[in-house]
């Protein structure tokens, strides 16, 4: 029942959920918030995950998240060099270290607020990692690649070929290693070449067969697009990059955050338009249902509500 529901959800919807959670985690102001995001993410993964290779990585993400928190706290202690006197948890001697690049202060007093700050910072990134893990473990990358914009169709195909090839490659490596065992080791035979070259040659041969088969079935057809439209798309692409670059400069110079955000927003919007325009040169259809269903829209709506509540809470005068 749950599996069935999970398979009905569009892969991009998982990304919407992930990104919403990541935004909440990134702007969290208390450890309670970051912990809730982390807990919710893990819960989602546990409930909805299918038996697929990309779904088995929760453990890795948990270890990574924990490591981030620990590293952040250790950094705070080792490189604190603080002389604070209030709420001291740990009193350590202070050192100075110099590699000829200016002194680095080490250790010193560790206060409770400082520890809390480090924990919050660390758990923020940890929660972002777990939030993104939701999409990575629940969204089938193959399906996601199918809904890539037409302008990126060729590359998406290449990437999905690579995803399909990877398990076969592991088999090829094993097969070639066995064959390698038939020949002893000589002067010219490094393990790397003895393995890599036969696998590469073999896979290249196979991939050219694949390319031939795909092309013979129509892969590479393009609908005719007017030169003007294509040029417009390129110009818009360049314009969006220029706007983004300028926005970055303005933001970094501290001149005006609103002005920077406006420039960046213009850049983002025009880049989307440019990619859309370029996508029109691909007229392909798809047998997979890539359209979103009401369930998807409900989930997206819920995420928006969650975000609004989160930010309203943050700015509300207490």
């Amino acid at each position: 029942m749950i599996q069935k529901l999970a398979s009905k959800i569009h892969p991009s919807t998982w990304w919407v959920i992930s990104l919403a959670l990541a935004v909440i985690a990134g702007s969290a102001t208390s450890i309670v918030q970051t912990l809730s995001v982390a807990a919710l993410s893990v819960l989602l993964i546990l409930v909805f995950r299918e038996n697929a290779p990309w779904a088995r990585s929760l453990k890795f993400y948990l270890i990574l998240a924990l490591a981030v928190v620990v590293i952040r706290v250790v950094f705070r202690i080792v490189f604190s060099f603080s002389q604070e006197t209030d709420d001291i948890l740990l009193e350590l001697p202070r050192f100075e270290l110099d590699f000829g690049l200016g002194a680095i202060g080490l250790l010193g007093n560790v206060s409770a607020p400082a520890m809390l700050g480090a924990l919050l910072d660390g758990s923020r990134l940890a929660a972002i990692i777990l939030a993104i893990a939701v999409a990575n473990t629940l969204a089938n990358p193959r399906k996601l690649l199918k809904s890539a914009p037409g302008a990126l169709y060729e590359i998406a195909t290449s990437v999905s070929v690579a995803i399909n090839l990877a398990p076969q490659l592991i088999e090829s490596f094993a097969r070639v290693r066995r064959a390698r065992g038939l020949r002893g080791k000589g002067r010219k035979s490094s393990t790397l070449n003895g393995l890599l070259i036969p696998v590469l040659e073999d896979t290249l041969d196979r991939s050219l067969l694949l390319a031939a088969s795909m092309d013979a079935r129509g892969f590479g057809r393009k609908s005719t697009q007017s030169k003007g439209e294509l040029l417009l798309a390129r110009v818009l692409g360049l314009q969006s990059l220029l706007a983004i670059t300028m926005g970055v400069f303005v933001l970094l110079s501290g001149f005006s955050a609103p002005a920077a955000m406006t420039l960046l927003a213009i850049g983002a919007v025009t880049s989307v338009i440019s990619v859309r325009l370029t996508s029109r040169r691909n007229s392909r259809t798809s047998i997979a249902r890539t359209a979103r269903t009401p369930i998807d829209f409900a989930v997206i709506a819920a995420c928006s509500v969650l975000l609004i509540v989160h930010f309203a809470w943050a700015v509300m005068p207490v």
Partner: peptide
């Protein structure tokens, strides 16, 4: 070595999609 998709249905649809 020449399959593009992972199910029969999608494999047969490939040419039609193109």
């Amino acid at each position: 070595g020449a399959f593009v998709a992972d199910t029969v249905l999608e494999e047969l649809a490939f040419a039609l999609e193109q």
